[in-house]
């Protein structure tokens, strides 16, 4: 099929490249842009490993066709750290021990970011709901919830300091 011009903003940078319209956003990110931090798990929208933010909203990149993401502001795990400094959510995941095998982690962190961008003081129930589309087989979610809670507290303090 004739390629279309995929124009979007990925992690703050403009992207413009020819893409077969049958391909998924996940393939464009991983294969064309080399952003392999986004993981493919099930490939059918059930595990959440490929979660990225599309205009701030968490989506399964395996279920989004590339043309649907054209013109959008896309954030992958590579765009979460700012100028080489880990985002407070990433710091909190490290500190709380919320990472084991790591395969769900990029999607988990983006789901958490989408939550905290909207709801800076979430309840544990809200945190569990926000990551309920992201399966983790290692942690039992205990330390993931703890990490998001910790990140929320830190972000609130940073906000307070500004």
């Amino acid at each position: 099929m004739k390629p279309f011009r995929f124009r979007a903003t990925v992690n703050g940078r403009p992207v413009d490249l020819p893409v077969d319209p049958r391909r998924r956003l996940l393939d464009v990110l991983r294969e064309d842009l080399g952003l392999t931090g986004t993981k493919e798990g099930c490939g059918e929208g059930e595990c959440g490993a490929c979660t990225v933010l599309l205009d701030g909203r968490p989506v399964n990149a395996c279920l989004v066709l590339a043309p649907e993401a054209a013109g959008c502001d896309i954030t992958t795990i590579e765009g979460v750290a700012v100028e080489g400094r880990l985002h407070p959510i990433q710091e909190a995941f490290l500190e709380a021990g919320a990472v084991q095998c790591g395969y769900c982690t990029p999607g988990m962190i983006l789901a958490a970011k989408a939550l905290l961008d909207k709801d800076p003081r979430p309840t544990d129930q809200a945190i569990k709901t926000a990551v309920s589309g992201n399966l983790c087989r290692c942690t039992g979610y205990v330390k993931i919830v703890k990490a998001v809670r910790l990140a929320a507290a830190r972000l609130a303090r940073e906000e307070g300091a500004v």
Binding site: G97, Q100, R137, C138, T139, G140, Y141, V142, K143
Partner: peptide, 14 residues
């Protein structure tokens, strides 16, 4: 100890 807790919590959920 943190990793041991992580193993226990994960095992419990499994």
């Amino acid at each position: 100890p943190q990793a041991v807790e992580g193993q226990i919590e994960g095992g419990c959920l499994m």
